[in-house]
């Protein structure tokens, strides 16, 4: 099919009229029409994917994880002094215990227990891991469940902070919009610095959950938009995302077909001999000659 010269008004309008007639779907023209329809459906999400993808690349992992002012404290040596209590009764009640690890947490011995729960998960106090086992933490000094206090949480947060900002308050939080995947409860420790650093400490384990700062809210929204999971769980295996992804494959494949057609029509060749390009070259020639004549 020859390319129509857009400057030839009569032929161009006739070609336009022909183009307006909707072709059957399973012809090349039909597939190309589907590219436009898929584009119409997807265009906003495509723009979102490119903008959010650019944001992730531009910011880098450190900013995305808000780790600009994170100091990774080396774990303390295991030095246990009296009192040291093993919670025998509680360990026997947990279920099938596969591992008990003892470590120091804020100068106190802490027992970290990995077990398979035999209770109804609804009443489970431990925390479920990705491999299906649970974890629970005990205070080696009292034999009771580990329960991080505000002073301890503040110390853990300050030890993980590299910045020069002042401590700006500690808050007892059930969970946080900053960390939608963290179950909580715990503490939010705030620092008065230019990044508005917030540090989360888990109450059940005394672990540092994460650092967050002024970029975190924007980053969270970028993840929500990129993964199309607006709950904040960063689950990209959701139905909406899967549908959009399949649509996008369709969109690019029909785009390739369009490119092939344009190529075959000579759309990517600036050849002088092509009828379509004759006026272009004439104009170019006259402009260049005009410039030469002036000089």
């Amino acid at each position: 099919m020859a390319r129509v010269n857009p400057l030839d008004k009569e032929k161009f309008e006739q070609a336009q009229k022909e183009a307006r007639q909707k072709p059957p779907l399973f012809t090349l023209s039909g597939l190309i029409r589907l590219h436009r329809i898929a584009g119409l459906v997807l265009i906003v999400q495509l723009l979102i994917w490119t903008v959010t993808g650019f944001y992730f690349s531009w910011m880098g992992r450190e900013v995305l994880n808000a780790e600009q002012l994170l100091h990774r404290t080396p774990p303390a040596s295991l030095s246990i002094s009296e009192p040291y209590v093993v919670p025998m009764r509680q360990l026997h009640q947990l279920g099938d215990v596969y591992e008990v690890n003892v470590r120091m947490r804020d100068e106190l011995p802490q027992l970290m227990v990995t077990y398979a729960s035999q209770r109804n998960t609804r009443y489970e106090d431990g925390r479920l891991r990705a491999d299906g086992l649970y974890q629970a933490w005990f205070d080696g000094g009292t034999g009771q469940r580990w329960n991080t206090g505000a002073i301890q949480a503040q110390r853990i947060a300050v030890n993980s902070y590299l910045g020069s900002g002042m401590f700006n308050g500690i808050y007892d939080v059930r969970n946080s919009a900053d960390l939608p995947r963290w179950e909580g409860p715990g503490f939010r420790v705030e620092f008065a610095d230019r990044l508005k650093t917030r540090i989360y400490v888990d109450q059940q384990s005394g672990d540092l959950v994460a650092h967050r700062n002024r970029w975190s809210l924007l980053t969270e929204w970028m993840y929500k938009l990129h993964f199309m999971d607006y709950s904040g769980q960063r689950n990209f295996n959701n139905l909406l995302m899967s549908t959009a992804a399949i649509f996008s494959v369709w969109f690019v494949l029909t785009g390739i077909l369009m490119l092939i057609r344009v190529w075959r029509q000579g759309g990517f060749v600036a050849g002088k001999g092509l009828k379509y390009n004759v006026p272009l070259f004439e104009r170019l020639k006259s402009r260049l000659l005009g410039v030469f004549k002036k000089n």
Partner: peptide, 20 residues
């Protein structure tokens, strides 16, 4: 579980231990 009571002794035996 009573073996866990030996952990302080183990820590003294391996002073560079971080976790047992």
């Amino acid at each position: 579980f009573e073996l866990l009571e030996r952990i302080p002794e183990l820590a003294a035996h391996y002073p560079d231990a971080l976790e047992a």
